[in-house]
Amino acid sequence: MKVTIEENEETGKFTIKVKTEDGEEKTIEIPKENLEEILAKLPPNVEII
């Protein structure tokens, strides 16, 4: 699983794009305050880009 994290400076939010092993892609946008909480919940086999 690969996770790409991009900061949107205009909105102050982060866009998180997840690509699973089977090629499925999902995108979510979260507030900056929630980034550490989300990262802590990721499984250890995740590659963060």
Rank of each mutant, 00 (worst) to 15 (best):
E24F: 12
I49Q: 06
D22P: 01
T11M: 04
E33T: 06
K32Y: 11
L42H: 01
T4Y: 15
T15Y: 12
M1D: 02
P31F: 14
I30D: 00
T20G: 10
E9Y: 12
F14I: 09
K41C: 15
E25S: 06
L39T: 00
T4W: 15
K26L: 14
N34K: 14
I48W: 14
I48L: 07
K19M: 14
L35H: 01
A40N: 07
K32A: 11
K2Q: 11
I38Y: 15
K2E: 04
E6P: 00
K19N: 06
V18G: 00
K2R: 14
N8F: 03
E33N: 07
E24C: 14
E33D: 08
K32R: 13
E10F: 13
I5T: 01
N45C: 11
F14D: 01
E33Y: 07
P43H: 08
I48C: 08
A40C: 13
E21R: 09
I5N: 02
N34D: 14
L35S: 01
T4D: 02
A40S: 12
K41I: 07
N8W: 02
E37Y: 13
K19Y: 15
E10A: 11
K17C: 09
N8M: 03
T27Q: 06
I48N: 02
K26Q: 12
V46M: 06
I16Y: 05
E25H: 04
T20N: 08
P44D: 08
E6H: 09
E25G: 02
G12R: 04
T20S: 08
E21S: 12
E7S: 07
T27W: 15
T11S: 08
E24G: 08
G12K: 04
E24Y: 12
E37S: 10
K13I: 14
T20H: 08
I38V: 10
V18N: 00
I16Q: 00
I16C: 06
E9W: 12
T4P: 02
T20L: 10
D22A: 07
P44M: 10
K2A: 04
V18C: 15
K13N: 13
I49K: 05
E6I: 14
E10S: 10
T4H: 06
N45D: 10
E25A: 03
K17E: 02
L42N: 00
E10M: 12
D22K: 07
P44L: 09
N34S: 12
V46F: 09
N45L: 06
L42K: 01
N45E: 07
E36F: 14
I30E: 00
T27Y: 12
P31D: 15
E47A: 08
T15N: 04
E24T: 10
P31K: 10
L39V: 03
V3A: 02
T11K: 08
K32F: 10
G12H: 05
I38Q: 05
T4L: 07
E36H: 13
I28P: 00
I38D: 00
N8G: 04
E25W: 15
N34T: 08
T11V: 03
I38K: 01
P31A: 13
N34A: 14
N8K: 03
K32P: 08
P44W: 14
I48S: 02
I28D: 01
K2H: 07
G12I: 02
E47L: 14
I38G: 00
K2S: 09
T11Q: 05
K13E: 07
P31Y: 13
N34P: 01
L35M: 06
K19P: 02
K13Q: 11
I28F: 15
I49L: 09
I5M: 03
T11R: 05
K26T: 14
T27C: 12
V3E: 00
E7H: 12
E25C: 13
E21D: 10
I38C: 12
K41E: 06
I48G: 02
V3M: 04
E9V: 14
T11C: 12
F14M: 10
P44S: 10
N8Y: 03
N34E: 14
I16V: 09
I38P: 00
T4A: 03
K41T: 11
V18A: 01
E25V: 12
N45T: 07
L35N: 00
T15F: 11
E36Q: 13
E47R: 09
E24W: 12
G12P: 02
E6N: 05
I16E: 02
E33W: 12
V46E: 02
T11F: 04
L39F: 05
E9A: 13
G23Q: 03
K41W: 13
I5G: 01
P44G: 08
L42R: 01
M1G: 04
T11I: 03
E24M: 11
E6T: 13
E6F: 14
A40M: 12
M1L: 09
I48Y: 09
N45S: 07
F14N: 02
L35P: 00
K17F: 13
V46K: 02
G23P: 00
N34C: 15
L35R: 02
I28L: 09
E24N: 11
E21N: 09
K32G: 10
F14H: 03
G23Y: 03
D22G: 07
M1T: 08
T15H: 06
K2T: 12
L42T: 01
V18E: 00
I30M: 04
I16A: 00
T11G: 08
I16S: 00
T15W: 12
V3R: 01
F14Q: 01
